[in-house]
Every structure is written in C-alpha cells, then in structure tokens.
Amino acid sequence: MHDRPQSTEILEAVARLLLDEIVPATSGRLQFLARVGANAVRLVAREIRQGDEALQQEWQRLDALLGVEVQPQEPGLRAEALARRNLGLATAIREGAFDQTETLVPLVQHLRAVVAAKLEVSDPKLLGQGGG
C-alpha cells in the first residue's frame, strides 16, 4: 500500500501547476501545450479512477455477443485475450456476420458501450451529446 497522496491526487497537483502557474507565465505554442498537458494528466487520473471495471464489462459484453469465454485472471494475459477477441470481432464484421438488422443492432449496442467507456476517460463532456 502506498502512502498518500494517491496517484490521482498527485496528477491533479500537476494539472494545477500547469494551469495556475505555467499557463499564465507563457504564451503561444508553449501556453497551448501547457493546457494540453493539463488535460493529459487529468485524462490519466480519470483512467486510474475507472480501474479495470471497463475491461470486465467489455469482456462480459463480448460474451453476450460472441459466446462465453473464460477470462484470464492475470492482467497482462487478460489484455492480450481481449485484443484477440476484438480481432475476432473485427474479422467477423468484415466478413459480413453483422450485416442483418437482427445482428447489427446488438453489435451497435455493444460498440456504443465500449466507446462510451473510453469517452468517460478521454472526453466525458461528449457523452451527453449523442452522435450524428
């Protein structure tokens, strides 16, 4: 167990340094990059807070779409297995397995949930806005 502050608290301190100290003291490209840097460390903090819940859910959703598979417990193996399943999904899409409405609708629902989990980290504001 690490001592406080937590990693997310440290990252927030870095974001505050960039926004409160570096941005007012700079201009142009450097100021822009300081803002981008603050957004970047906040993104990483959101990713840490999300934990591996999103991965668990993606696995279960793939179970519902493609059939149940046993999930490896070791994190590295799990990420590898998830990448393999997504390769399988991509191949099935390319080969036309989801062309019909009855297969397309659950696929789009699955992809919406997976992309939403990414956006919770990368761009939470976008989520309420829908698409199209």
Partner: peptide, 19 residues
C-alpha cells in the same frame, strides 16, 4: 485518444441519428 470521439459519431450516423 480522440479516435473514440470519431467512433462515437460513426455509430450515431450508422444508426441514422441526425439525418
């Protein structure tokens, strides 16, 4: 990390929203 934004838009367009 902006690729997901485009994926979200594509899903909306494929579902026919906004058209």
């Amino acid at each position: 990390r902006r690729t997901a934004e485009t994926e979200w838009e594509l899903l909306g367009l494929i579902e026919g929203k906004g058209i």
